[in-house]
């Protein structure tokens, strides 16, 4: 669970100054650092990013009385449903985060194996 929190915190900080896709690097990095399995890695990335995106979107939505959420929802999805737009925002961010986390895990597996091999050879 620590991964979700780390992804959330670091991706938030990264996105404040870097392009939006910096979140992918963070999710990748955290899952590279530590993740028990492929499914978990995806979940950490997905949940960590979705958490940040949904929370921030919700914050803006509430603070601005949803003045723009409905309008954008009808522009993009032809429906004046604010929840859908917040959900889609979260899922989209989550998807990128999840895939990045998954990649982090898989790449770790290769390099991790190599490191293990190296350790083996040295001994």
């Amino acid at each position: 669970m620590i991964q979700i929190i780390l992804i959330a915190i670091f991706s938030l900080l990264a996105q404040l100054i870097l392009p939006w896709w910096s979140l992918a690097v963070v999710a990748f990095g955290v899952c590279f650092w530590r993740s028990p399995g492929a499914g978990r890695a995806f979940f950490y990335g997905f949940a960590g990013i979705m958490l940040v995106w949904v929370a921030y979107a919700l914050l803006i939505h509430v603070r601005t009385d949803g003045v723009f959420t409905g309008r954008m929802s009808s522009l993009l999805f032809k429906t004046n449903n604010e929840a859908i737009l917040i959900l889609v925002t979260g899922i989209l961010g989550g998807l990128v985060g999840g895939l990045s986390g998954l990649s982090g895990f898989f790449v770790r597996q290769i390099t991790g194996t190599q490191m293990a091999n190296r350790t083996l050879r040295r001994s």
């Binding site: 996105q15 404040l16 392009p19 939006w20 896709w21 940040v52 995106w53 921030y56 979107a57 803006i60 939505h61 603070r63 601005t64 003045v67 723009f68 959420t69 954008m72 889609v88 925002t89 989209l92 961010g93 990128v96």
Partner: peptide, 15 residues
């Protein structure tokens, strides 16, 4: 991606 990101997307235009 840019458009839906709460950090740089349309969310930032909500006032």
């Amino acid at each position: 991606g840019q458009l839906l990101s709460p950090f740089v997307g349309f969310w930032q235009n909500a006032e």
